[in-house]
Computed example of a mutant assay.
Amino acid sequence: MPPEPPVHPASAFTHDGATLIWEARGRGSTTFVLVHGIGMGRTVFTGLADLLVEHGRVIALDLPGFGDSPEPARTPTIERLADIVAAFVRAERIQDPILIGHSMGTQVIAEVAARHQDLHSRLVMIGPTVQIGQRRALVQLRKLAKDLADESPKVLITGAREYLRAGPNLRRKMRAMLVHRPEIIYPRISADTLVLRGEADTVSPRDWCEFVAAAIPRARLREVPGSGHETMIKNPEPAARLILEWLAEL
């Protein structure tokens, strides 16, 4: 049997007064950097990471104030989160990273690509947020509740645990997500981009994802049949397959 890919203990990285926690697995010239959504943490990517680690190094992040990362003195904007992620990529000397973001994480990696083009990133945007005209907290919470109505216990338990860990400032973090305008930066993204959504995703509806894919010059849209917004948690195999097929086509 081949040796198990190495697992590195979680480490901290601090930039501009905020700290993220990161954990790396595997080896190889290809590096996947996984960026979670609002209220989540790196553990939501466990299933997807298990599949991607066979194809390179996988690094999962806890953004500042999420997961195991300490709460920063002030709630970061999406732009500041992107700068922190970019600083981490540079500090670790990661060449041509494949940035995989889910939900709010898609906003973060979009800003990384637009603001830090020298990193030569490739992007996978799973369930991009937030649709124009729907940027109110109650609207988003209703959409998420509808999406989760038929989800598996695994998804519900994972999500509930991570939201509790997100701490008392979740409202301010959601506001930072909702005031961000990703459509302004999409045309500035030169990176190859895969927009990926679950077929039944009510948080990231198809017309919005079509808009996102059309706005980014080098983007493609793919759907995961029978999945909702948390597609990479419930059943990561189809998402991993589509990501790897897309990379093979580049």
Rank of each mutant, 00 (worst) to 15 (best):
G101E: 00
R90C: 04
V203H: 06
S29C: 12
V155K: 09
E92R: 10
R188W: 06
A191R: 01
R222C: 12
M40G: 10
E111V: 01
Y163S: 15
T31D: 07
I98K: 03
I233S: 06
P97A: 08
R241G: 10
P153L: 05
Q117N: 10
M104A: 10
A149Q: 13
T14P: 13
M232A: 10
V44S: 14
T75N: 09
R222F: 11
I100D: 03
G17Q: 09
E230A: 15
G226D: 12
T19M: 02
L61W: 01
L164Y: 14
P128T: 03
Y163D: 15
E111Q: 08
W208N: 05
V89A: 06
P153A: 09
R135K: 13
A219M: 09
G198M: 05
L52P: 07
G133L: 08
L138R: 15
P64T: 00
A149Y: 12
L61D: 03
E23T: 09
P187I: 02
H15I: 05
D118I: 09
G37E: 05
K143L: 14
L119N: 06
V108H: 01
W22M: 04
T19H: 02
V35S: 01
L164E: 15
G47K: 08
L247E: 01
L194T: 03
F66M: 03
F211K: 09
V112P: 03
R206H: 11
V108G: 02
L148R: 07
R42A: 04
G47A: 08
G37D: 06
R197F: 11
H120A: 12
H229W: 09
S29K: 11
E54W: 06
V203M: 11
A248F: 01
T231E: 15
E210P: 12
I98M: 02
L52E: 02
L48V: 04
H102Q: 12
H102C: 06
W22S: 05
T231G: 13
V195Q: 01
S29V: 12
R80E: 13
Q140K: 11
R90Q: 06
I78C: 05
V7H: 10
Q107G: 09
P128L: 03
L63E: 03
G228Y: 03
P70W: 09
H36A: 01
L63Y: 00
A73T: 14
H116K: 04
G159Y: 11
E111N: 08
A160N: 13
R165P: 15
E199A: 13
Q95S: 15
G56V: 02
A176F: 09
G159I: 15
A110V: 03
R142I: 13
G105Q: 02
E23Y: 04
H8W: 12
L156P: 12
F32C: 03
I59K: 00
G105I: 00
I109H: 00
V195S: 03
G39A: 09
V33M: 04
S11E: 12
I185R: 05
Q140S: 12
R222E: 14
T106Q: 01
T14Q: 05
P6L: 09
V53W: 05
H229R: 05
R188A: 08
D150E: 15
R142H: 15
A86R: 02
G56T: 02
I98D: 02
R181C: 14
I233T: 07
V53H: 04
R220T: 14
T46W: 01
N169E: 13
A110M: 02
S227N: 14
P5R: 00
H55C: 01
A60I: 00
P225C: 10
L20D: 00
R241F: 11
G56C: 02
V108C: 04
G133A: 10
E162Y: 08
